[in-house]
């Protein structure tokens, strides 16, 4: 485990409070973008999620924390139906994106994934140029006009804080970038689809501290413009970047709330034990 779990909860609370003070306040009481109701999830006959109920508000950064195998990644992947790619999986209950159940037969999974972008734990740029990586999504969805793409690629690379580092070698292979740059490229690639929600599955866990800091800064930048759900193992990261935090344990959502509150004054014993490093 990282150093955060060894630190007392109060220091995490401090980080959260400090981060919160630097953030502009979001308009409270917005209708949530995603409402999850009574969600069960199965890998074959193994149940991985049990009755999860959670609201995700527009423009917030929600951190999902919990020990390994607690279902936080599974939960994240139900939001854009990425679990469909795994044979034998099944979701029951409701994941409502703007009040439409993403699992209903009327939902076009292509459109769903355009609206709900995703960035994975390991940077996975395509073996193509930086430009083509960013333009991949827009091209899929039929936006191929050169000028429009140029503008979009620049905007997304700037949005992912990568433009200054790569603007003079857009045609170079994406595989030549460093790990951190690759991950920011993956974020830029996801942004190019102009999603409403961005799912980040431990985006910094494979990166060095310096790159991690850049990713965190980026998440901070993106806050408000996109709704971000981030899975993280790193308590300090959760404290630094998120508005709200949800704690998962053994496939159940234990509790969720404003990050500052979760880290300073958790209501449940398991939460406190987890964030103070008692287990996990």
């Amino acid at each position: 485990m990282n150093s955060a779990s060894a630190s007392p909860a109060s220091s995490l609370g401090g980080i959260a409070a400090d981060a919160a003070s630097r953030r502009p306040r979001l308009a409270a009481g917005d209708a949530p973008v995603i409402r999850v109701r009574d969600l069960d999830f199965f890998y074959g006959s193994t149940q991985a999620l049990w009755g999860v109920e959670l609201d995700i508000r527009r423009g917030e950064v929600l951190a999902l924390i919990g020990p390994s195998g607690c279902g936080k990644s599974t939960f994240l992947r139900t939001l854009n139906r990425m679990n469909d790619t795994i044979p034998g999986t099944r979701a029951e209950g409701h994941v409502l994106l703007d009040e439409v159940d993403v699992n209903s037969p009327d939902v076009d999974v292509v459109e769903l994934r355009r609206r709900v972008g995703m960035v994975f734990q390991r940077p996975n740029p395509f073996p193509m140029s930086i430009y083509d990586n960013v333009a991949f999504g827009p091209r899929l969805h039929g936006r191929a006009r050169r000028a429009e793409l140029d503008e979009l690629v620049e905007r997304c690379l700037k949005g992912a804080a990568l433009w200054d580092e790569v603007h003079d070698r857009l045609k170079a292979s994406a595989l030549a970038l460093s790990g951190g740059q690759q991950q920011r490229l993956c974020i830029a690639r996801a942004l190019a689809n102009e999603p409403e929600v961005l799912l980040l599955d431990e985006p910094a866990s494979a990166l060095d501290p310096n790159s991690t800091a850049k990713i965190e800064d980026l998440i901070f930048e993106l806050r408000g413009r996109y709704t971000i759900v981030i899975v993280t193992h790193n308590m300090q990261q959760a404290a630094r970047v998120s508005d709200r935090t949800a704690f998962f344990l053994k496939g159940r959502l234990v509790e969720s709330g404003p990050t500052e509150e979760m880290f300073t004054n958790p209501t449940r014993l398991e939460t406190e034990q987890y964030i103070t490093g008692r287990f996990g």
């Binding site: 292509v110 994934r113 355009r114 994975f120 395509f126 991949f136 999504g137």
Partner: peptide, 21 residues
């Protein structure tokens, strides 16, 4: 690598688009 296919699918590509591109 499976991760490439995943990335493509997550960007809204159909399985066929993923295969070809």
């Amino acid at each position: 690598p499976e991760t490439l296919a995943e990335a493509s699918l997550a960007l809204g590509a159909t399985p066929w688009q993923t295969s070809v591109r």
